[in-house]
Design a protein around this nucleic acid. Structure first.
Lengths: 124, 124
DNA sequence: CCGTATCCGACCGGATACTG
DNA sequence: CAGTATCCGGTCGGATACGG
């Protein structure tokens, strides 16, 4: 039942953490929650392509890692709000540098891909 | 034959790049290659838990994205050296901030996990 | 509204064998 | 040495239905 993790990662601290944060949805969620606290279905709607199941799993993992704080209000029906913990906030600051890098260098990557594909498929 | 990518990511530049670099092995490889240019089997041996197949795939993807440079020498048998391109180097500088964050905050994460598990499994 | 449970197909990645 | 090809079991994740 409990999820199984990479055996090798267990022995190396950095890899264990990397294993968890090198995750597309986690990074996207962190970034979204950095703007403002948000409810479950709001996140689900906002992040296109993210299914309810995976959202649930990812949030739970982030909460367990102490990166995201989950607060349930006893309204009817129940209201749940997710926000970043201080730890999660520091991670997002670090990780968002990656997103900025992505924006800045996307064109160059696209060009590299095109060049590579020309050499590969049309190989004389 | 050509790998299929996330449809949603196609429309958002950041997500397309994030899709590719939010990858455990890719980041690990970038970091390893930042130290010095390296050969295939050397990488394979150095990075525990990384199979030949996945190493090959990952390197090819990194090369296609213009992040890694592959140079083959006509020795017998063939020698191939992988190194970072300038673009790959800038990515690694950004990404290594993540690794450092991981090292600094691993203890806190571990504690958060323990606390979470206590509340969850032993929930009175 | 906020999830969990179940089913099931797709894909990922390990093991192995083989090529230049 | 540096890979590619094939097979194949395990896991991830989408769809659907249901519960608090």
């Amino acid at each position: 039942m409990r999820q199984q993790y990479d055996v090798y990662a267990m022995r190396c601290p950095t890899r264990m953490v990397l294993d968890r944060i090198a995750d597309k949805w986690a990074l996207l969620l962190l970034d979204r929650l950095a703007e403002e606290p948000m409810r479950f279905n709001r996140l689900r709607r906002d992040i296109e392509g993210l299914s309810q199941k995976v959202l649930s799993q990812t949030l739970k993992r982030l909460e367990r890692d102490g990166l995201v704080f989950r607060e349930a209000f006893a309204t009817v029906p129940v209201t749940v709000e997710y926000s970043l913990t201080p730890l999660g906030r520091t991670l997002n600051e670090t990780a968002s540098a990656l997103a900025h890098w992505a924006e800045r260098n996307m064109d160059e990557i696209l060009q590299a891909q095109a060049a590579y594909d020309r050499k590969t498929s049309g190989g004389s």
